[in-house]
Protein backbone atom coordinates (compact mmCIF):
# COMPACT_ATOMS: atom_id res chain seq x y z
CA UNK A 1 0.00 0.00 0.00
CA UNK A 2 1.24 3.41 -0.80
CA UNK A 3 0.95 4.86 2.68
CA UNK A 4 1.13 8.46 1.48
CA UNK A 5 -1.89 7.89 -0.75
CA UNK A 6 -3.74 6.36 2.20
CA UNK A 7 -2.99 9.49 4.24
CA UNK A 8 -4.39 11.68 1.46
CA UNK A 9 -7.53 9.56 1.05
CA UNK A 10 -8.27 9.61 4.77
CA UNK A 11 -7.72 13.38 4.92
CA UNK A 12 -10.00 13.78 1.88
CA UNK A 13 -12.70 11.77 3.64
CA UNK A 14 -12.56 14.01 6.74
CA UNK A 15 -12.52 17.21 4.69
CA UNK A 16 -15.46 16.01 2.57
CA UNK A 17 -17.34 15.31 5.78
CA UNK A 18 -16.65 18.81 7.06
CA UNK A 19 -17.56 20.58 3.83
CA UNK A 20 -20.88 18.71 3.78
CA UNK A 21 -21.86 18.79 7.45
CA UNK A 22 -20.24 22.16 8.31
CA UNK A 23 -20.63 21.09 11.95
CA UNK A 24 -17.17 22.27 12.99
CA UNK A 25 -16.95 25.27 10.65
CA UNK A 26 -20.05 26.97 11.99
CA UNK A 27 -19.18 26.37 15.66
CA UNK A 28 -15.53 27.39 15.40
CA UNK A 29 -16.04 30.47 13.21
CA UNK A 30 -18.71 31.85 15.51
CA UNK A 31 -16.77 31.01 18.65
CA UNK A 32 -13.45 32.40 17.39
CA UNK A 33 -14.97 35.65 16.15
CA UNK A 34 -16.79 36.09 19.46
CA UNK A 35 -13.56 35.49 21.42
CA UNK A 36 -11.68 38.10 19.39
CA UNK A 37 -14.44 40.70 19.78
CA UNK A 38 -14.94 40.15 23.53
CA UNK A 39 -11.19 40.30 24.30
CA UNK A 40 -10.75 43.46 22.20
CA UNK A 41 -13.71 45.03 23.99
CA UNK A 42 -12.29 44.06 27.40
CA UNK A 43 -8.85 45.52 26.64
CA UNK A 44 -10.33 48.90 25.73
CA UNK A 45 -9.03 51.84 23.68
CA UNK A 46 -5.30 51.75 24.47
CA UNK A 47 -3.74 51.24 21.01
CA UNK A 48 -0.39 49.96 22.26
CA UNK A 49 -2.04 47.50 24.64
CA UNK A 50 -4.37 46.29 21.91
CA UNK A 51 -1.49 45.66 19.49
CA UNK A 52 0.50 43.81 22.16
CA UNK A 53 -2.51 41.63 22.97
CA UNK A 54 -3.36 40.83 19.33
CA UNK A 55 -1.26 37.67 19.00
CA UNK A 56 -2.46 36.32 22.35
CA UNK A 57 -6.10 36.89 21.40
CA UNK A 58 -5.58 35.24 18.03
CA UNK A 59 -4.10 32.11 19.59
CA UNK A 60 -6.72 31.94 22.35
CA UNK A 61 -9.39 31.96 19.64
CA UNK A 62 -7.50 29.37 17.61
CA UNK A 63 -6.85 27.13 20.62
CA UNK A 64 -10.50 26.95 21.64
CA UNK A 65 -11.57 26.46 18.04
CA UNK A 66 -8.95 23.73 17.71
CA UNK A 67 -10.38 21.81 20.66
CA UNK A 68 -13.85 21.91 19.13
CA UNK A 69 -12.46 20.83 15.77
CA UNK A 70 -10.47 17.94 17.27
CA UNK A 71 -13.42 16.70 19.34
CA UNK A 72 -15.63 16.79 16.24
CA UNK A 73 -13.06 15.05 14.06
CA UNK A 74 -13.95 11.63 15.50
CA UNK A 75 -17.71 12.16 15.68
CA UNK A 76 -18.39 10.97 12.14
CA UNK A 77 -16.03 8.03 12.69
CA UNK A 78 -17.93 6.81 15.71
CA UNK A 79 -21.33 6.68 14.00
CA UNK A 80 -22.45 3.21 12.86
CA UNK A 81 -19.02 1.64 13.41
CA UNK A 82 -17.43 3.50 10.49
CA UNK A 83 -14.08 3.95 12.25
CA UNK A 84 -13.99 0.24 13.11
CA UNK A 85 -14.49 -0.50 9.44
CA UNK A 86 -11.69 1.89 8.47
CA UNK A 87 -9.34 0.31 10.99
CA UNK A 88 -9.86 -3.17 9.55
CA UNK A 89 -8.41 -2.10 6.19
CA UNK A 90 -4.73 -2.94 5.64
CA UNK A 91 -3.59 0.62 6.29
CA UNK A 92 -0.96 1.36 8.96
CA UNK A 93 -2.40 3.04 12.05
CA UNK A 94 0.15 5.82 11.53
CA UNK A 95 -1.42 6.58 8.13
CA UNK A 96 -4.85 6.87 9.76
CA UNK A 97 -3.41 9.31 12.31
CA UNK A 98 -1.57 11.35 9.69
CA UNK A 99 -4.68 11.50 7.48
CA UNK A 100 -6.82 12.81 10.30
CA UNK A 101 -3.99 15.16 11.31
CA UNK A 102 -3.71 16.57 7.78
CA UNK A 103 -7.44 17.31 7.60
CA UNK A 104 -7.47 18.89 11.06
CA UNK A 105 -4.35 20.95 10.41
CA UNK A 106 -5.63 22.29 7.08
CA UNK A 107 -8.89 23.24 8.76
CA UNK A 108 -7.09 25.10 11.57
CA UNK A 109 -4.66 26.75 9.19
CA UNK A 110 -7.46 28.08 6.97
CA UNK A 111 -9.27 29.28 10.08
CA UNK A 112 -6.08 31.01 11.28
CA UNK A 113 -5.57 32.72 7.93
CA UNK A 114 -9.20 33.90 8.01
CA UNK A 115 -8.92 35.17 11.60
CA UNK A 116 -5.64 37.00 11.03
CA UNK A 117 -7.04 40.03 9.14
CA UNK A 118 -9.98 40.20 11.56
CA UNK A 119 -7.50 40.31 14.45
CA UNK A 120 -5.38 42.97 12.80
CA UNK A 121 -8.40 45.20 12.21
CA UNK A 122 -9.96 44.67 15.67
CA UNK A 123 -6.68 45.24 17.50
CA UNK A 124 -5.51 48.20 15.40
CA UNK A 125 -2.41 46.46 14.06
CA UNK A 126 -1.11 46.51 10.50
CA UNK A 127 0.16 43.65 8.40
CA UNK A 128 3.93 43.47 9.01
CA UNK A 129 6.41 43.53 6.13
CA UNK A 130 7.50 40.05 7.19
CA UNK A 131 3.94 38.71 6.80
CA UNK A 132 5.06 35.45 5.11
CA UNK A 133 6.74 34.60 8.42
CA UNK A 134 3.47 35.31 10.20
CA UNK A 135 1.80 32.74 7.94
CA UNK A 136 4.68 30.34 8.69
CA UNK A 137 4.06 30.89 12.41
CA UNK A 138 0.39 30.11 11.91
CA UNK A 139 1.30 26.97 9.96
CA UNK A 140 3.78 25.69 12.55
CA UNK A 141 1.62 26.61 15.54
CA UNK A 142 -1.55 25.05 14.17
CA UNK A 143 0.44 21.96 13.10
CA UNK A 144 1.77 21.48 16.63
CA UNK A 145 -1.68 22.04 18.09
CA UNK A 146 -3.31 19.61 15.65
CA UNK A 147 -0.65 16.94 16.30
CA UNK A 148 -1.61 16.86 19.97
CA UNK A 149 -5.32 17.53 19.54
CA UNK A 150 -5.91 14.68 17.07
CA UNK A 151 -3.89 12.28 19.21
CA UNK A 152 -5.77 13.07 22.42
CA UNK A 153 -9.12 13.24 20.66
CA UNK A 154 -8.47 9.67 19.51
CA UNK A 155 -7.58 8.68 23.05
CA UNK A 156 -10.82 10.08 24.46
CA UNK A 157 -13.10 9.32 21.49
CA UNK A 158 -14.74 6.31 23.13
CA UNK A 159 -15.16 7.87 26.56
CA UNK A 160 -18.48 9.21 27.77
CA UNK A 161 -16.91 12.39 29.22
CA UNK A 162 -14.74 12.99 26.14
CA UNK A 163 -15.68 16.63 25.65
CA UNK A 164 -14.63 17.63 29.15
CA UNK A 165 -11.61 15.30 29.29
CA UNK A 166 -10.06 16.36 25.98
CA UNK A 167 -9.06 19.92 26.98
CA UNK A 168 -8.00 18.77 30.47
CA UNK A 169 -5.63 16.19 28.97
CA UNK A 170 -4.29 18.12 26.01
CA UNK A 171 -3.84 21.69 27.22
CA UNK A 172 -0.91 20.95 29.59
CA UNK A 173 0.88 19.28 26.68
CA UNK A 174 0.05 21.95 24.13
CA UNK A 175 1.10 24.92 26.30
CA UNK A 176 4.72 25.06 24.97
CA UNK A 177 3.39 25.21 21.40
CA UNK A 178 0.94 27.98 22.24
CA UNK A 179 3.53 30.04 24.12
CA UNK A 180 6.04 29.79 21.29
CA UNK A 181 3.35 30.63 18.71
CA UNK A 182 2.13 33.65 20.73
CA UNK A 183 5.68 34.97 21.15
CA UNK A 184 6.62 34.47 17.49
CA UNK A 185 3.46 36.06 16.09
CA UNK A 186 3.59 38.80 18.77
CA UNK A 187 7.12 39.75 17.70
CA UNK A 188 5.92 40.01 14.11
CA UNK A 189 2.58 41.79 14.64
CA UNK A 190 3.62 44.29 17.32
CA UNK A 191 7.24 45.00 16.30
CA UNK A 192 7.85 43.33 12.91
CA UNK A 193 10.95 41.86 14.60
CA UNK A 194 11.93 38.84 12.51
CA UNK A 195 15.09 38.20 14.52
CA UNK A 196 13.14 37.83 17.76
CA UNK A 197 10.48 35.71 16.04
CA UNK A 198 13.09 33.39 14.49
CA UNK A 199 14.11 31.95 17.86
CA UNK A 200 10.52 31.08 18.73
CA UNK A 201 9.95 29.68 15.25
CA UNK A 202 12.93 27.35 15.67
CA UNK A 203 11.44 26.21 18.96
CA UNK A 204 8.10 25.57 17.21
CA UNK A 205 9.82 23.45 14.55
CA UNK A 206 11.50 21.45 17.31
CA UNK A 207 8.25 20.86 19.19
CA UNK A 208 6.46 19.89 15.99
CA UNK A 209 9.13 17.37 15.06
CA UNK A 210 9.17 15.75 18.49
CA UNK A 211 5.38 15.53 18.74
CA UNK A 212 5.06 14.30 15.15
CA UNK A 213 7.45 11.40 15.72
CA UNK A 214 6.06 10.52 19.14
CA UNK A 215 2.34 10.70 18.29
CA UNK A 216 2.72 8.82 14.99
CA UNK A 217 4.77 6.08 16.64
CA UNK A 218 2.33 5.36 19.47
CA UNK A 219 -1.03 6.06 17.82
CA UNK A 220 -1.71 2.33 17.44
CA UNK A 221 -2.00 2.07 21.23
CA UNK A 222 -4.72 4.72 21.04
CA UNK A 223 -6.94 2.87 18.56
CA UNK A 224 -6.43 -0.72 19.71
CA UNK A 225 -8.35 -1.66 22.82
Amino acid sequence: MNDLLAVLWIARKDLLHETRSKATTVATLFFSALTLVVLAFAIGQDERLLQDAASGALWVALAFAGVISAAQSYQADLEDGAFDQLLTTPVPRAAVYLGKLLANWLFMLVLGVMLLPVTLVLYGASLPASWPWLIATLALGTLGFALIAVFYAGLTANLRARESLLPVLMFPVVVPILLAAVRASGALIAADDLELAAGWLRLLVGFDLVYAVLCTAIYHFVVEE
Binding site: K13, S21, Q85
Partner: peptide, 22 residues
Protein backbone atom coordinates in the same frame (compact mmCIF):
# COMPACT_ATOMS: atom_id res chain seq x y z
CA UNK B 1 -20.74 -4.14 10.93
CA UNK B 2 -24.21 -4.42 12.45
CA UNK B 3 -25.21 -0.99 11.15
CA UNK B 4 -23.16 -1.15 7.96
CA UNK B 5 -20.14 0.83 9.17
CA UNK B 6 -20.57 3.66 6.66
CA UNK B 7 -19.93 7.41 6.89
CA UNK B 8 -23.17 9.40 6.77
CA UNK B 9 -21.66 12.26 4.76
CA UNK B 10 -20.11 10.16 1.99
CA UNK B 11 -21.89 8.56 -0.95
CA UNK B 12 -21.86 4.84 -1.71
CA UNK B 13 -19.58 5.45 -4.68
CA UNK B 14 -17.16 7.44 -2.50
CA UNK B 15 -17.06 4.61 0.04
CA UNK B 16 -16.13 2.10 -2.63
CA UNK B 17 -13.46 4.42 -4.06
CA UNK B 18 -12.03 5.01 -0.60
CA UNK B 19 -11.96 1.27 0.15
CA UNK B 20 -10.45 0.50 -3.26
CA UNK B 21 -7.68 3.04 -2.67
CA UNK B 22 -6.95 1.82 0.87
Amino acid sequence: AVFGGAYATLTAREHLRLDAAL
